[in-house]
Design a protein around this nucleic acid. Structure first.
Lengths: 279, 279
DNA sequence: CGGCATGTTGAAGAGACTCAATAAGTGTGG
DNA sequence: CCACACTTATTGAGTCTCTTCAACATGCCG
């Protein structure tokens, strides 16, 4: 079974499709709303929660009593610096666990970057389960490892690549974890699920630079901008080369595409989740 | 027992003391030498190895069969980008395990940043031991967590701080893991064990900028440059504030100062190591 | 239609890099 | 002990990328 948005019954709704994307029958991107849908103590353990984009999932100073399994959507792990600037440290994808970071002090917070469905899990529960189940343990260790490697990629990119190179790499990798619909001519259309601001804060640059660089890539004929949320990837190989990840692209792609969710989703498909087909 | 260089019998030799430092009776910094002392398959498992600064410990494409316990000295985990530029992703300190990164492909390598004593351990051995010993397992997990947090700090610093701020934070943190000798007047002298080039490549800037910023900090009266390898820290609080880590300094300091080595050093004090007092 | 959020474009300025020259310190040889 | 080679660190000048700030465009929704 392949892991991909195109095969999902609960893919993003078509509500915010631009004219161009609607005509081409492409998936739309959910609307970002700053609706602070706080995760209060009202949800039962294992309960399914649906949040709009921009909702706070874990506050900077949180008890850390709960962790979250992502069923759909994308979350961002971020930190605000003294002057209000934001650095996104990681995007978390469906099937991944987020919030297990030890004592939740270091000024990190987690928000939804898109509309998302989450499963809240009690930390104690989670640890007990992991202790008892070697398969889960192994899966979780693999996730942690993936997390570290992505963070290392990010650090190296920010440290020694130019914004254009970082963005190229990001777009190339995004084809592995965002809707990516092939076209008859061999190219394919990527649906960018996160906002320009999120891209900028992940890649440690500004919205303006992202915009400029995107258009520069279009000039170079590597991508075409269908509309702000849809890029036609003309030359994925070249994109990876520009992003300096030609060598590691296969590896990174495999990990991003992995059906990470299987065992966790099975493990926590009980409770209120089991009653919904979306799970 | 406190973790500190000043208490160590095997601290850095005084051979390379500058005039100023020698007069003040400060510890010296070992000489950087590009002597590529490859770790061949001749060492026995658990064997103690002494390497000069600049020696390759793990090559970019390594089998990953061995991991290393650092007994003294500092190692650097690094990656070279396409144009030969280097990004240091982490410094590894005494008591820490390095080289456990899964399949050793992603272009990472490990070298000594100072003269170092290492203990080579067979990966299988290590894993078996970890499986059997909950204390070791916990210690190792804590190390991994520390590693992630430091990497996150680095990412945020590079992403949203200026070189001067990054360096300030680094100097403040260095007081926790490099020789730091208090003076009667309340200030203290930090011995910088790594080279300007390493500082630059860790903080994602250039040697020139490091030099300029260092002198700017001296202008501001936060530090005094005794000689290239010795800084008198006049105002540690202000340094941390400049580095934007006032809030988290205590936390980070505690973790850097932790006697990380105890259980690992005990666990692998057998074999050839036990016969040397340096262990 | 107007309000609002998001995204794009332009112009100016600053910060950091590059390149090059110089200084300081170390080790070697005679 | 000193001259020499060599590494490491510092300083200077010029350049350029990227940010900043501002205006403008676009799309969505009431």
């Amino acid at each position: 079974m392949e892991f991909g948005w195109n095969n999902r019954a609960d893919g993003p709704p078509d509500a915010k499709l631009s004219r161009g994307a609607r005509a081409a029958n492409l998936p739309g991107r959910p609307l970002e709303q700053t609706q602070s849908h706080r995760a209060g103590p009202t949800y039962l353990s294992g309960d399914l929660v649906t949040l709009d984009a921009g909702a706070e999932v874990i506050a900077e100073r949180s008890s850390g009593r709960h962790i979250w399994l992502i069923r759909s959507g994308i979350l961002r792990l971020q930190r605000f610096s003294f002057d209000g600037r934001r650095q996104i440290l990681a995007l978390a994808l469906p099937g991944e666990i987020i919030g297990y970071e030890t004592p939740w002090r270091s000024g990190l917070s987690v928000e939804t970057a898109t509309r998302a469905k989450l499963c809240r899990i009690d930390r104690r529960d989670f640890e007990d389960r992991l202790d008892a189940d070697a398969v889960l343990r192994r899966e979780f260790a693999a996730q942690q490892q993936d997390h570290i490697e992505r963070l290392r990629w990010l650090t190296c990119s920010i440290g020694s690549l130019r914004p254009e190179e970082r963005l190229s790499a990001f777009l190339a990798l995004a084809t592995c974890c965002m809707p990516y619909q092939p076209l008859p001519d061999g190219t394919a259309v990527l649906t960018m699920l996160i906002s320009r601001a999120d891209m900028a804060d992940l890649l440690a640059t500004t919205m303006e630079t992202i915009s400029r660089v995107t258009h520069a890539l279009e000039e170079d004929g590597v991508v075409t901008i269908v509309d702000p949320a849809h890029f036609r990837i003309v030359d994925l190989k070249k994109l990876a080369a520009l992003g300096r990840i030609s060598d590691s692209f296969e590896d990174m792609a495999t990990r991003l595409k992995q059906p990470r969710d299987r065992c966790f989703l099975r493990a926590w498909s009980c409770g209120s989740c089991v009653s919904r087909s979306a799970c």
